[in-house]
């Protein structure tokens, strides 16, 4: 039963999907892993990015990846506003565990329903030269609409890793995540650094959203399918480890593709949930956690 072609194709498709999953999860690894902000609305920001790419693509014919890049500063500003509101209302008073979560849930809900009211329940897609083509290496087919998001996702991971490890602000963000109290004693303002870090995490959603709509058609509630995935990846990768996020994304991509190939596509959604529960039960620190 186990044909080699099917196996090879599943592995390749899984790796391609995994690079894209990493792109969607990077924002969560920064917000949840490094800053301890449980932004469950992150997938819906990604979907918002998809709709912006769709709107600019259908109106002006802009390439979705270009609109994703153009959206980065806008989403950064959006993240700054959201964090300021979150900090002033919840984090400052230590209310983040219950009310902060509910706040993000409400945000998720408002954005999703607003998209539903504006664009309806129909699936939307973008047009670009590379969507629809595919490469063939031997018996393995590589669809460009999967290859491009995977490469961009890996590029985003490398870029974020370099920002966090090489730049001044990146190191400041790592310092906040390790010990924000000590940072305060050094005379730095953790809130300002966290604002920038959260802006960065939302900024990744703009590009990830463009990738999401390149991979396939998008509808307003598609973000829900990604909530389980992004948190499973963030936890499996080891909370805040950027390299771990990519590794966990690839693992989830391959396991999901295998499940879809051998058991049926509808079961793929259950994989991330299973991984999340198993990791929490067996090794909560994840693969690359400290």
């Amino acid at each position: 039963m186990l044909s080699l072609d099917l196996l090879l194709n599943a592995i390749v498709a899984g790796i391609l999907l995994g690079g894209f999953y990493a792109a969607v999860s990077l924002g969560i690894s920064v917000a949840f892993g490094l800053l301890d902000i449980v932004n469950i609305a992150h997938p819906v920001f990604v979907v918002l990015g998809s709709y912006i790419a769709y709107a600019l693509n259908s109106a002006l014919g802009l390439d979705p990846l270009l609109t994703g890049l153009l959206g980065v500063p806008v989403f950064f500003a959006l993240g700054v506003v959201v964090y300021r509101l979150y900090y002033a209302s919840f984090e400052k008073t230590g209310e983040e565990s219950l009310r902060g979560l509910v706040f993000f849930f409400g945000l998720l809900f408002i954005i999703e329903v607003a998209l539903l009211l504006v664009y309806g329940v129909d699936y939307r897609m973008v047009e670009a030269a590379y969507i629809g083509d595919s490469l063939h290496i031997g018996s393995v087919g590589i669809a460009l609409r999967l290859l491009v998001p995977c490469l961009v996702g890996i590029g985003m991971t490398v870029a974020l890793y370099l920002v966090l490890s090489r730049t001044f602000w990146g190191r400041a963000i790592m310092a906040v995540s390790q010990d924000s109290q000590a940072l305060r004693l050094m005379g730095a303002n953790p809130v300002r650094i966290k604002t920038i870090a959260f802006g960065l995490s939302i900024a990744t959603a703009s590009l990830a959203g463009a990738l999401l709509i390149v991979i396939g058609p998008v509808e307003p509630s598609i973000g829900r399918e990604y909530i389980g995935r992004v948190f499973a990846i963030a936890v499996l990768g080891g909370m805040g480890s950027i390299g771990g996020t990519l590794a966990a994304g690839l693992i989830l991509g391959v396991v999901e593709t295998f499940t879809a190939t051998y058991y049926g596509p509808s079961w793929a959604l259950a994989v991330s949930f299973g991984i999340l529960l198993v990791v929490l039960a067996v090794r909560p620190a994840g693969l690359f956690g400290r």
Binding site: V38, S97, I227, G228, L269
Partner: peptide, 19 residues
């Protein structure tokens, strides 16, 4: 573990049961 993991698990739960 931390309470937040409970919240995250319940977020994914409905979708999995629905599947």
């Amino acid at each position: 573990l931390r309470g937040v993991f409970f919240s995250i698990a319940t977020l994914a739960l409905a979708l999995v049961l629905q599947t």
